[in-house]
Design a protein around this nucleic acid. Structure first.
Lengths: 187, 187, 187, 187
DNA sequence: CATGAATGAGTCTTCATTCAT
DNA sequence: AATGAATGAAGACTCATTCAT
């Protein structure tokens, strides 16, 4: 009836979407589980609402994943602006390590995703690969690393960061792992 | 009750222990699940028996894990006898990759083990560390790698092998990852 | 609000009514279920609209039922024009059997209708009874059946046709059942 | 430990089986539903126990069904001992009508049984057919009915008894239906 | 009036854990 | 010690019904 205001119903829907994603992220980063019932309870919506927004648990995990991975991708340009290519790479591995540590549950959920790990990685892993690719290209331009590096291999080499646990001296370990890797990468 | 004689009972018990471990390993490497009921069924013992042998699911996973990791540790000496130190290291990473690929379910279970990741790594990760340590020492002796490498860092760098999936060209990827790493390790 | 003019709204409403009935019929004859949500989806209207047109699932089933049964009632006059009374009866039982077989889901839904089986039969069963009544009267006039037959009893005797399944030799079974019944009915 | 008494555990199990069947029968004859949760609640056992005894809802319905149908089959011999063949048949249809009326929910559940209607009828319908067959044979021997009657057709003709509802004058209707049928059956 | 998002009760099913034998 | 039946909490999912727009 009114024209000025955004319809409350519409607002509810959007807010629900947000709340569900937030609840799912929290659940994934803490327990690593994605019980629709629990998420509904946390987000304070009905279970049916969760199902309306995300047909399957996988779809929900995927949505959370995409969103989170995007953070790592988005930070690359600014890193390259503010640092030398080499520094940018090193700082980014720090981001990656921190991300891995915080989102442990998420990482696990991704690995154990029962269905369509294909689609999952097709999009997410590709995003990561392109982020690394950009960093490598900048370094190749600067002459600091070899030109024949496969971003995927570098990504795999960084995979060990997944093992880091908050209790250990992860900062130092990350640096040392990056050092080791860098020695193997440089010209 | 008695300690001197090996009672027939004792034999049964030992056999049960074996069967449970075998069933758990199979379950972990295939489905990645460790349902006590399922394992009991596979091992052809009662659930109660499984509980008697392993108080918690974690204890069972840990036991399986220890056993499996031992294989990777045990192979080191013979590798060093039959190959140059560098070759030994490279061949061992191949073993590691194959192991990771075969025991995917196990690896996942380990990562998602809800409790006591401490104890889990205290023993298992330590075993792996010592295996790498041995390989590194041989290479240091031969002058092929730097003397200041931390085995743990190298182990982390190899962690990316966990991502490999059977469908991909994992052999080539393993070699390339090892190459990259080796460049960073050598003198 | 107004009664004199046929509003465009009215047209929409009538069309919706039709679509809902059509969707319900299809659902009943195929799956035998009457999920309002599913029906709404099939009819391409909102659930609320279905509720507006039919207050309860029963009301909807009843409406579909009435409509379908009418087919069996409407065919009687023409049968009596084109056949002898006895043949008309026999042909009609064939119609009945085919109808039962096609609308199996409908028949089941009717039987399991949780509430108001009263109202359900008050109208639908009455229509069937009158159809049979007409057929019997013609036969009484022709002197081929006894005059003291209760149409309801005859209807019940034909109820066995409900059991027929498409896979069996239902045509022959219908004829034999009709034969048996006819022997009991004739003068 | 004791030898004289049947082990209590064994007794519990058997008692549970009974209670579940009883609860299922009640549920089927009243609401026509077979919710495992509800049945467990009624029988005062855990849901898991119901699952242990009956793997699927169908298996439970089937078990109840077999049991109930058996009653109708078992009564035949005594009827033939105490009555003339014709009377036996008429009394049996009375039993059938009463059974149908009481077990309405059961009958419905049977018709709508989603899976394996095959197996269901292979056993149950066959039992019914043989019951009627016995009654017919006795009558053929006594010369009261024709020898070429197909028990299955007679069973179908009696199917109309399913329609009877307790509120109506079902006794009289049953008799009249049987009369009509008998006229068609006799020599 | 029509729409369809939201709700939540209720069903199915699995599985860790207990415990009587 | 071994067994496995029993239990029930918990998760997945459906669907009737309400209600804001």
């Amino acid at each position: 009836m009114t024209t000025g205001a955004v319809s409350p119903r519409r607002a509810d829907t959007r807010r629900n979407h947000e709340r569900i994603l937030a609840a799912a992220l929290e659940s994934l980063t803490t327990t690593g589980e994605v019980s629709f019932n629990t998420i509904a309870r946390t987000a304070e919506v009905g279970v049916g609402t969760v199902y309306r927004h995300f047909p399957t648990p996988d779809a929900l995990v995927l949505a959370v994943y995409r969103r989170e991975v995007q953070h790592l991708v988005d930070v690359v340009p600014s890193l390259l602006e503010e640092h030398t290519p080499e520094q940018a790479f090193r700082v980014w591995t720090g981001h990656l390590a921190r991300y891995m540590m915080t989102k442990r549950g998420l990482a696990n959920a991704l690995r154990t995703a029962p269905t369509s790990p294909k689609e999952l990685f097709a999009s997410a892993s590709e995003a990561m690969r392109s982020a690394i690719s950009t960093l490598l290209e900048a370094n190749v331009q600067a002459g600091s690393v070899r030109a024949d590096l496969d971003p995927l291999i570098v990504l795999r080499a960084l995979g060990g960061l997944l093992y880091l646990s908050p209790s250990e001296d992860w900062q130092s370990q990350t640096e040392r792992l990056t050092d080791l890797l860098w020695r193997g990468m440089r010209t």
